[in-house]
Amino acid sequence: MYPKISLMGYRLSGSRCLGLCLLLTFFMGCYLAALPIQYENEALPNQVRHRITAKQVLKKRLAVLVPFRDRFEELLEFVPHMYSFLNKQKIPFHIFIVQQKDNNRFNRASLINVGFIYTKKDYDYIAMHDVDLLPMNDNLPYEYPSLGPVHISSPQTHPKYHYDTFIGGILLVKREHYEMVNGMSNNYWGWGLEDDEFYVRLKDANLSVIRPNNITTGTDNTFRHIHDKTYRRRDMRKCFNQREVTRRRDRLTGLHDVAYKLHTTHTVAVDGLNVTVLNVELTCDKSKTPWCQCPDPPKEPVKKS
């Protein structure tokens, strides 16, 4: 005979046990909720909040503007060199080759104006950069010129030009300052003087040109000048009244009235490194600047033997 077990009593005991467990869980939850949260490091909550709410300061973007015509050998050296140089400084940049595609004489200043118009919405500052001048000293700073234009290729380090007001070669200008002085003059067809006129514009706007400090290299080893003057002769002709006009400050032309057509834009890879090529046709008003096309010098008669 097996003993009889009362199921009624068992159910009654189980209900009481379940009720006790629920009651204890409720009181323990209330107790824990009332306890303050303890941190091993009291500054930790503030540090975490700071990381979440702080906004990262983004670096300013640089548009490297290279006025260009028929200098492909130099370009093949320029692009890989500048990619390597600027990547070391961790500068967000892109190279724009502003190529003149017309029959007029080369106009460096107008091409820079066109490049600025094309890039100003997306870039914070420009480098007006000759294709044949390669910086070799890693301490030359291409960072954002917040205080004023920065002349990278200073007279103390440029391989050829050493006068105090020289600002050619490589000049950094932020977007607001370039617009403030109305860009560069459009009167300079042929080689030379457009950067000297731009210096006067900066001076008239009370903008001081800043040059790199603590550069220990000199005129022989700060830059590599890859221009071959025997192969690439500069167009230094002066015709009509060009000499008279271009020696004066130009208060009329500039960024607002540069006349051009942008025919095409292309992304071109040089050693796998992308640059943007702008194919530009500059328009010349011969009633104002007839020297955009100097007449060819008369040929000497062939002497008969």
Rank of each mutant, 00 (worst) to 15 (best):
S13R: 12
S15E: 07
L22W: 11
F27P: 02
G29H: 03
P36S: 02
P45M: 07
Q47P: 01
L62G: 05
A63M: 01
V66S: 01
F68H: 05
R69T: 10
D70H: 08
L76Q: 13
V79H: 06
H81Q: 11
K88G: 01
V98R: 07
V98I: 14
Q100A: 05
N107K: 05
N113E: 09
G115P: 01
F116L: 09
I117K: 15
Y118G: 03
D124K: 05
H129T: 02
P149K: 04
H151V: 09
H158A: 07
Y161L: 14
H162P: 04
H162F: 14
H162I: 09
F166R: 05
I167Q: 13
G168C: 06
L171E: 04
K174M: 08
R175K: 15
M184T: 08
N186E: 11
W189I: 10
L193D: 11
D195H: 10
F198C: 02
V200H: 12
K203P: 04
I210H: 10
I210A: 06
T217G: 08
N221S: 12
D228A: 11
K229S: 10
R243F: 11
R247C: 08
R248K: 15
R249F: 14
R249Y: 15
R251H: 12
V258H: 04
A259V: 02
K261S: 05
K261M: 13
T264H: 06
A269Y: 08
A269K: 15
N279P: 00
L282W: 08
T283R: 15
S287I: 07
W291P: 01
K299T: 14
E300I: 10
P301E: 14
S305R: 15
S305W: 14
